[in-house]
């Protein structure tokens, strides 16, 4: 009853879609890491305005549905800001800012999870805040951040499927395109699901291993 032949016949479209999905995952995750780090530093700042700005950023993006935010970025942002942005740009900006809010929380929580005594000991020997961060706090915090960061990045890859609603040709968009002229949605969407599982199950497994190694320490 399955007609797998149509997948083989249209595999170039699927490969292109997969490449697009991977590309957007990598670009938006990297941009999200950079933005998230800035937001986390803002949230840990001694200046109220920076702390408030960081907090607002995080609360905004964590409490708006990604689909709504994505559509808004593409359709409404150009009208509000009076600028014309491509759908690729809208997609990158929307996904990057969204994941940045989650990364920011991971960074902040990681740094704040380090015992105050570590900061005391570093400062008591005359270290500046920067030295204490670089030599004492971050090396410990980063180890704790790796598992949640990898988990969030896996979610990010799944979230890129939403890009299809603004007609970016990711894996899901390509699948809907193929099914529109082959009338075989079952085969196509099954294949897309399997592709995600094949990529993400090993990554999830590695992330869990990292977590276990943390607990063992």
């Amino acid at each position: 009853m399955f007609d797998w032949q149509i997948l083989v016949a249209n595999q170039h479209l699927l490969w292109y879609g997969l490449l697009t999905t991977i590309k957007y995952t990598i670009v938006t995750s990297l941009a999200g890491l950079a933005i998230g780090l800035l937001v986390a530093v803002g949230q840990l700042s001694r200046f109220f305005a920076l702390r408030a700005a960081g907090r607002i950023f995080v609360e905004f993006f964590r409490n708006i549905p990604l689909l709504v935010w994505l559509l808004w970025s593409y359709y409404a942002l150009p009208i509000f800001a009076g600028i014309n942005i491509s759908r690729e740009m809208a997609g990158v900006v929307a996904l990057s800012l969204y994941v940045a809010s989650y990364y920011a929380e991971i960074f902040r929580a990681g740094i704040q999870s380090i015992d105050r005594g570590q900061f005391d000991a570093a400062r008591a020997m005359g270290m500046s805040d920067g030295q204490a961060m670089r030599r004492i706090i971050l090396p410990q915090a980063v180890r704790r951040m790796v598992p949640p960061l990898s988990g969030q990045t896996i979610i990010q890859m799944k979230n890129t499927t939403l890009l299809s609603v603004i007609t970016i040709p990711d894996l899901l968009y390509q699948a809907s395109y193929i099914s529109s002229f082959t009338y075989k949605p079952m085969e196509v969407y099954t294949a897309v699901g399997l592709v995600f599982l094949v990529i993400l199950i090993p990554l999830t497994w590695i992330a869990r291993r990292l977590e276990h190694r943390q607990e063992g320490r």
Partner: peptide
């Protein structure tokens, strides 16, 4: 602070 040692 560098001239003052501290034990916690």
């Amino acid at each position: 602070r560098a001239r003052v040692g501290m034990v916690f």
